[in-house]
């Protein structure tokens, strides 16, 4: 199966031709602080969840900025910051073939099995 892992320079920017045309980022962006993806655990026992992204010069600043913008109303007890360039993503153009193997295996779902009514709540 031919699929490629795309490396994005920013979380989700189409950097390969999957968009209508390539984005025009002609402007000099050398001095821009790197971009970070922010994940927040809203309370103990739950997963960290992606909440958005921000620019920061380093990881410590990313976490402090994330606290200031994403947890002003007690939305979180823990923050992960991942520099966006390290996020790898599957290609939506390949979605059909990529996820196809899971479509015809209905026996993986509990509803596939017809049981007599006497067997309650299994």
């Amino acid at each position: 199966m031919a699929f490629q892992i795309n490396k994005n320079f920013y979380g989700d920017i189409p950097d390969d031709g999957s968009g209508a045309t390539l984005p025009q980022t002609a402007t000099e962006t050398k001095n821009e602080w790197p971009l970070w993806e922010i994940f927040i655990r809203s309370k103990q026992g739950l997963d960290h969840k992606h909440v958005g992204s921000l620019h920061a010069a380093d990881a410590a600043m990313a976490i402090e900025n994330a606290r200031d913008v994403y947890t002003r109303r007690m939305e979180g007890v823990s923050i992960w910051a991942v520099e966006s360039k390290y996020v790898h993503a599957s290609n939506p153009d390949d979605a059909e073939s990529f996820y196809e193997p899971s479509e015809d295996k209905i026996y993986r779902h509990p509803t596939f099995y017809q049981l007599p009514d006497e067997v309650n709540h299994m």
Partner: peptide, 17 residues
């Protein structure tokens, strides 16, 4: 402003721009 700039950046325009 930050949430929105980030959303616009996903469309391929840089913050600086």
């Amino acid at each position: 402003g930050l949430y929105l700039y980030s959303a616009a950046e996903t469309l391929g325009m840089s913050r600086d721009e």
